[in-house]
Write a protein that binds this DNA or RNA. Sequence first.
DNA 1: ATGAAAGCGCTAACAA
DNA 2: TTGTTAGCGCTTTCAT
Lengths: 339, 339
Amino acid sequence: MSGKRVGITDVAAAAGVSITTVSHALSGQGKVNDRTRQRVIDVAAELGYAPNRLASGLRSKRTGIIGLVSDEVATTPFAGRIVLGAQEAASDRGWLVVVVNSGGDRLIEQRQLASLLAQQVDAIVYATMSHRPSSLPTALRTIPTVLVNTHDESIDASWIVPDSFTIGTDATRHLIEHGHERIAHLTIAESGLGRDGRVAGYRAAMEEHGHSPIIVSTPEGATAVGGREAAEQLFERHPDVTAAFCFNDQMAMGLYQVAALRGVQVPDDLSVVGVDNLDLVAAALLPGLTTVALPHYEMGRWAIDQVARLLEHEDPPPAVHERYRCELIERDSVARPRG
Amino acid sequence: MSGKRVGITDVAAAAGVSITTVSHALSGQGKVNDRTRQRVIDVAAELGYAPNRLASGLRSKRTGIIGLVSDEVATTPFAGRIVLGAQEAASDRGWLVVVVNSGGDRLIEQRQLASLLAQQVDAIVYATMSHRPSSLPTALRTIPTVLVNTHDESIDASWIVPDSFTIGTDATRHLIEHGHERIAHLTIAESGLGRDGRVAGYRAAMEEHGHSPIIVSTPEGATAVGGREAAEQLFERHPDVTAAFCFNDQMAMGLYQVAALRGVQVPDDLSVVGVDNLDLVAAALLPGLTTVALPHYEMGRWAIDQVARLLEHEDPPPAVHERYRCELIERDSVARPRG
DNA sequence: ATGAAAGCGCTAACAA
DNA sequence: TTGTTAGCGCTTTCAT
């Protein structure tokens, strides 16, 4: 409509007060008479005034922008959930989040991080998709940082990771509770925080019930193709298993496929449990896949909550470390074993 | 390391020049002696100086931040590709992208947009996931805007959408070229730009070869469940079709499932083509799904290129409208019909 | 080719 | 409770 942008001076003039009073009235900081405050608010609304966050940030050293650094944000559908959680939590506080991703490249990461710092972001959320211990860029020591899906002992930062061990125990016990004894675990060959914890949890649950663990791992990676490869091994070497706990939903998809080719019915001949609760897979499979949900959205929110905690105290509060207990989502891929 | 942040003044002092000269030397704006420039650059690097983008933005009216508004960014895996494309293109120019999503809620959208404007973003990329004509928030008239996956006649903004019609013709012709004549199109009941164009393209390709169109639509939505529902209809009412072109990969997944239950083999008994080229589905299905790739990444890049074009000219250049020709990705779900 | 000075639009001290 | 005055760290005139 009007050509010129309306600034705080315009509001002050229109309300007949000083710009300081406008600033105070709108930010709720200083003491302002309620009647004055209301008038200022009304005038500001009428004029369509919105504070220039650049100017206020320059002065107050707070931009209300949080940088979210990820290694491969858009390549995995999980990442989006982390970002969404962070954004919604940020939005609740009137903050913005700017996402950069490095694709795993250290150099790019460094450049992106420099961009964020130059932009005077208030804090950094550093999320990896791979849940491996990461050695953080040193630039992060300068600024409040929260880690998601990874941790780093060399820095005093809060972090949150899914509790991999209980993912393994919960999934396995769920199968045991349904009467299964010969339960295999299909996983990837490559070691990693997410993998190793689940394997250990599976082992523990099997052993506590006196069942011997059957672990099949594939060098293929945690995809449907890897799942197929592992499934072939499984049917060759352990044709008598009645249930399988898979490293993730995609591997479970591969297992479904090989099972179908061999005339093995899920869940009547074989019960299956996955990990991720990836809608596109877990809910889409037939029968629907029972799986342990990874709390990506929640971790994103948690990270912003931690940032808020860091930012509201002048002296940095101690770092918080959390292993999030994941939830088993029941669908139709688990049944009692036959006869 | 050092406690205080290094500013332009520190660099000026260390290099023995004025801050004006530092600014000129680093930005490449004014005329500076090459030797002076080099010295400034060296000193700046040595000190680890990085300009405060808040301060420079406040003065120069350019923040180097692009706002990306989406209706449901993280709920779909496609969205991530748009964001990634935009981010990478932005990063090439030293820009940052801040992503907000409204979840389709007008009120939230308005609030988020206000946040972006208050943050003085240089431009807005407005992306919908649904590819429907959107009536844009009026706030967008104030600022350079580029539309992705949608278009709006009420505003003079550039936009890009996938060419739905040729998706339909290309997919259908591909099947026809493989010798199929009785080809069904499985789609959703709800009308929309993406859907209607594909249907029209399918019709056109069928008719140009004298084949009669067989369209099966489901009220269920474009998911595996919807695909199953449509597939049931298909097998009941048109048991003689030899090929199916599905609205998207997820529906194709549903078709695979029902086909398997009925003992119909893909591709020997039934050839299938999808749309999306969603890795998690198209590449994961067995056999791999031949599908038309939607250019989400490319559209994200394109949007930022357009923003750059808008920003470098003082007077706004005319809007550009593009229908992106999509590529067919061949996998293993198409074969010649049986004898 | 270089520098001095003015301000971008706001908030934080400080005074009144 | 309100207003005055300094800046925040940079880029931009405009001199020199």
